[in-house]
Amino acid sequence: MKKLTLIVVSMLSAVLVLAACGADAGGSGNAENYPSESITYSIPFDPGGQSDVEARRQQPYLEESLGQDVMIQYKPGGGGSVGWSELIGKDPDGHFISGINIPHIILQPLANDDTGYQTEDIVPAAIFQATPIGIAVSKDSDIESLEALVNKAKESPGSITVAGSGRYSGHHIALLQLQDLAGIDMQYVPFDGAAPSIQAFLGGNAEVIFGNSSDLIKYEDDMNILAIGSEKTFKPLPDVPTFKELGYDMTPGIDRGVAVPPETNQEVIDTLETAFLDILDEEGVEDEMYNEGFEPKRMGHEESLEYIEQKTEEYSRILENVEGD
């Protein structure tokens, strides 16, 4: 019996020692030898989604350039807000980073008071990719161009149904922006994500759809894409005009980047910025991105900050206009 007791006691103490070690290791964080341990790369969306596809592409390159394991963790919920609320509470040592999406991180705190983070709390290290948002109608529709759609909407305000993913989302803000610029009023019907909205659109439940470029390319044969939100002609869709070319000064899209908790050391941010942006120079990466319907972007920490600030102003104005109605 004594033997058994001894074993148990030794096991218990071993566990306690291990736990104590774990506590020590978690607290340390030194910018000089960053990264000193494995990095958790949190994706605030479901596995298999677009953010995940990008993170999985980056993972091997990051592990090579940073010299540490990169573990991808999923924290879906609230359209990303659950994951970002977690991010801002983490130790600012750069060993916990999270994917970010714009406009999500701007619109969520604007829409709800209890979002759990503020846009300013999120410190971007880089923005590396964008999905331009486009507007499309069914192949069978009599609407042939964005202008025809605008005219039709002017004739019968509120009767054209537009499918998109979520309210206070990239698609919703794109619609609000278009309505604002064109002086029209359409009926927005938010769906529970991009896939359900496409399903509803293909099933004829909505006349118009706002969709991510990747989805639009996938269903190119079933729809007539009227305009796309990229700055210049979007490579995978050479025949589709941009909103800007059609006279609407808007570039709707979803920008993806990576962020660290507030008060992270500048050197850590610089290391991450370089690590992420260098991936775009790797052979074949840009082509892969275009094939999947993404647009590569290269914004460092400073540039991303400015960009977020500028977008925040833009979106606050649009939302105020809506609430003022």
Partner: peptide
Amino acid sequence: VGISPVGGESRYTFGFSQLQSG
């Protein structure tokens, strides 16, 4: 509980932001 799927506002979260996802 959580963000209303169509209205986009958060409901019955009683201040817990984690409850936004329901």
